[in-house]
Design a protein around this nucleic acid. Structure first.
Length: 750
DNA sequence: GTGCCTCGAGTTCC
DNA sequence: CTCGAGGCAC
């Protein structure tokens, strides 16, 4: 198609036909690319087609199609599947890599449950299927919806495709009215080989491994294609259920089997770490003879009542763990070491490798962690612990951690070619040339250029538009890079995003008329930006990208302060106390370094001076500082980092410019239905029916805030036997106090 | 002071 | 997904 008539010689009819072909081709390629399936056409061809499309449109503007690919560029991909929000989140599992991790897991389960579980703690053990997870929703026995895992909260609706899989029943007899069955879609080795042979014969692309084949097949927009692919399904879990399936995990799996699902035959019960590990070894030995891929063994607490008590950490259940098989390794040649600069200025070394296949995927880059990992010796010639002395030209061993992230694991010194030099880690930023320094005890070297450094500025902007922050549709990493470098319509700081439209209207060449943009895509972008002027306060705080302040800390801060102004005022007030805190730390540090330092007098006196400066810290500052670091999840490190950011005139001015465009929304209490929502609760004394961690997690899930100490802000004290000073203080302050049973009754868990 | 448990930050491939 | 480090409980 590309070697067709030169655009200049084209008739209108030829142009029209070719635009139609290009639109179909490019839009299909877009879909394939964005759906994580491998791209249908190479990037170079894609770009060439896109350029040709633009050329033809430029010469025949009247022929531009409604679905023109030039309008799609920069915009979000057309949605292939509808989104589905899971009624019960689909979580991932935490991983274990050796036997010790397993006994640790069992110990931690025991510990969390507290007394009374020394005996009779039973686990299930089953192979972990390497496929893609699927949630099947049945209502009154009818399959009504199938959804992929997605990010765990929201997946994609693939019901039509799921209906083509023989292992998935369309109807269930005597099942709960509402039942979500979860399991893994996979492809057997035999079917995979046959499919690839067919694909090859038909001149179609083959799949790298059974999992990609299964994932690719499941994501076909045309269910008839999925039907032709030999997919299978193992059920191993459930989401929402209107009636319990059983009392135990094992019983529930059995019930799923009775309902007509296929369940994995290698599932057993085990009542000790030794038995669990024995089953792991057995499955590992059988691995090569199985007709499907597995990547480990999953253990779950069998008793569903205990599972409920154990509950969840932020992303994983406490009652299950995946014992992974050792990762596949590959040796390859290290061609170069490049340095990347992250949003906090961190310099990260990346290995450029001769491409090699690891676990079914071609890897050409891998992380080298940090300076010490590469280095053999430090400046004074001492060996560095954990350092491998990795040099450009070496043979290195690569693996994919958790079967995803490529890493350099080792170096073969016996195969080192002559004339290699130890790698010298740069002490200046490769992007902006500023000094790159390592703070004491820190593993990473950081560029000190701040926002002067283009790499840091761009990465910060990418963070600002990222999903957990402003999440602006049509303004992803690529567009940020383009806008940052743009002379006519630059975006150099977050506030610039919100002035884009106004500035564009002043420009001679409008965004809509540029290559790769059109009226629709430019309009969509401006709309998407406009939409985010009303935004959760937590997202604003997180989006600023202040070091040590991540998504969770941002939520804590938003809940603590409710408004931007309150937070800014508190930080301003607390500033003298923050400085005093740092000075006190420095003084302590100087004293510790006393013996080692020749300059100790100077250092100590300087530190003393600073500490003295802290003496006239206003009371208000002390109070504001104490309030900040006393609030849940915020410690001195985060508080100092925040304080520094707000006290830095340039950073603060940029924040003010940004906030002028925003209307931050205060966070809501989490569960307004619960009587403890929004309350600050303190637990003290011995809890008999739950452990401390359990009590805290439970209270927080109901929207309460759990604090460690009683203060005027405490709403409720839960006191078990042996409560001491806290109970007394609560009584003095007139704070409501309950015993454990009273608490359980209050939250409705008797 | 020590030892969990989480969170934050950085990273690759598609 | 992993590693390092911050926060907090013991």
């Amino acid at each position: 198609m590309n070697d067709g008539t030169p655009v200049g010689d084209m008739t209108e009819q030829q142009a029209k036909a070719e635009l139609a072909r290009l639109a179909e081709l490019l839009n299909r390629a877009n879909t394939a690319y964005h759906q994580d399936d491998s791209p249908e056409i190479p990037d170079a061809d894609y770009d060439a087609f896109k350029i040709r499309n633009a050329e033809i449109e430029a010469r025949f503007p009247a022929l531009k199609r409604k679905d023109s690919p030039s309008d799609q560029v920069g915009a979000a991909p057309a949605e292939g599947f509808a989104k589905v929000t899971h009624s019960v989140r689909m979580l991932s599992l935490s991983n274990a890599f050796d036997d010790e991790d397993i006994s640790d897991f069992v110990t931690s389960v025991r510990k969390y449950l507290g007394k009374g579980t020394e005996t009779a703690l039973v686990f299930t053990a089953e192979p972990k299927i390497d496929g893609l997870s699927l949630s099947l929703r049945y209502e009154n026995g009818q399959l009504v919806q199938a959804a992929t895992r997605g990010d765990g909260e929201t997946g994609e609706n693939v019901t039509a495709n799921a209906r083509t899989i023989d292992d998935i029943p369309q109807t269930l007899d005597s099942a709960p009215d509402i039942l979500e069955v979860r399991g893994e879609v996979y492809m057997s080795h035999a079917d995979f080989e046959a499919l690839n042979a067919r694909q090859d014969e038909a001149g179609q692309k083959t799949f790298a491994n059974p999992r990609n084949a299964a994932a690719g097949s499941m994501r076909q927009l045309d269910p008839s294609i999925t039907r032709a692919r030999p997919l299978k399904f193992f059920a191993y879990a459930w989401g929402e259920s209107s009636a319990p399936l059983a009392d135990t995990q094992f019983g529930a799996i059995d019930r799923l089997k009775t309902l007509g699902f296929s369940t994995n035959p290698l599932t057993i019960r085990a009542d000790s770490p030794a038995q669990m590990i024995a089953h792991y070894r057995e499955i590992e030995a059988q691995r090569a003879t199985l007709d499907y891929d597995i990547d480990g063994v999953v253990y779950k607490v069998d008793d569903l009542g205990l599972q409920a008590r154990l509950g969840f950490r932020s992303t994983t259940p406490r009652w299950a763990i995946a014992h992974k098989f050792p990762a596949e390794l590959a040796w390859t040649h290290l061609e170069a070491i490049d340095i990347q600069v992250g949003r906090t200025g961190a310099l990260s070394p990346v290995a450029r490798l001769t491409p090699v296949t690891v676990g079914g995927v071609v890897v050409s880059n891998a992380t080298l962690h940090n300076e010490d990992y590469i280095a053999g010796r430090d400046a004074s010639g001492n060996e560095i612990r954990g350092g491998k002395d990795i040099r450009v030209g070496d043979w290195v061993q690569v693996y994919r951690a958790g079967d995803v992230i490529p890493k350099v694991a080792d170096v073969d010194l016996s195969r080192r070619p002559d004339g290699t030099e130890p790698y010298i880690f740069p002490e200046t930023c490769p992007i902006c040339g500023s000094d790159a320094v390592r703070e004491e005890g820190d593993a990473v070297r950081r560029c000190t250029g701040g926002l002067i450094c283009a790499a840091q500025a761009v990465e910060k902007l990418k963070h600002f538009v990222s999903r957990a922050a402003f999440d602006i549709e049509g303004l992803g990493a690529k567009q940020i890079e383009a806008f940052y470098a743009d002379d006519q319509l630059p975006v150099r700081e977050p506030a610039d995003i919100f002035t884009l439209q106004a500035r564009d209207s002043q420009n001679l060449t409008k965004l809509a008329n540029r290559d790769g943009w059109g009226e629709t895509s430019a309009g969509n972008l401006f709309d998407a930006i406009e939409e985010k002027r009303d935004i959760q306060l937590a997202r604003v705080i997180f989006g600023l990208g202040i070091r040590h302040v991540g998504e969770v800390a941002a939520q804590d801060l938003a809940r603590h302060f409710s408004t931007w102004e309150a937070m800014a005022t508190a930080l301003d007030t607390a500033r003298p106390a923050a400085l005093a805190h740092r000075a006190a730390d420095a003084a302590a540090e100087a004293e510790r370094a006393l013996a080692a330092s020749e300059n100790r007098r100077a250092r100590i006196s300087e530190a003393r001076k600073k500490a003295e400066a802290g003496c006239d810290v206003p009371d208000a500052a002390t109070t504001a500082w104490a309030d900040l670091i006393g609030s849940d999840g915020i410690g001195p490190t985060m508080a100092l980092s925040l304080s520094d950011a707000f006290a830095n005139p340039e950073e603060r001015a940029a924040m003010d410019r940004l906030l002028a465009h925003l209307r931050p929304v205060a966070p809501e209490a989490r569960d307004l239905g619960s009587p403890v929502a929004g309350k600050t609760v303190v637990f003290t004394g011995t809890l008999e029916k739950m452990t401390r961690a359990e009590a805290k997690a439970r209270a927080e899930s109901l929207g309460a805030k759990v604090s460690g100490s009683v203060s005027a802000k405490t709403d409720l004290l839960v006191a078990g036997p042996g409560a001491g000073s806290k109970a007394k203080k609560a009584a003095d302050l007139g704070i409501e106090t309950l015993d454990e049973d009273g608490w359980l009754a209050l939250i409705g868990a008797t």
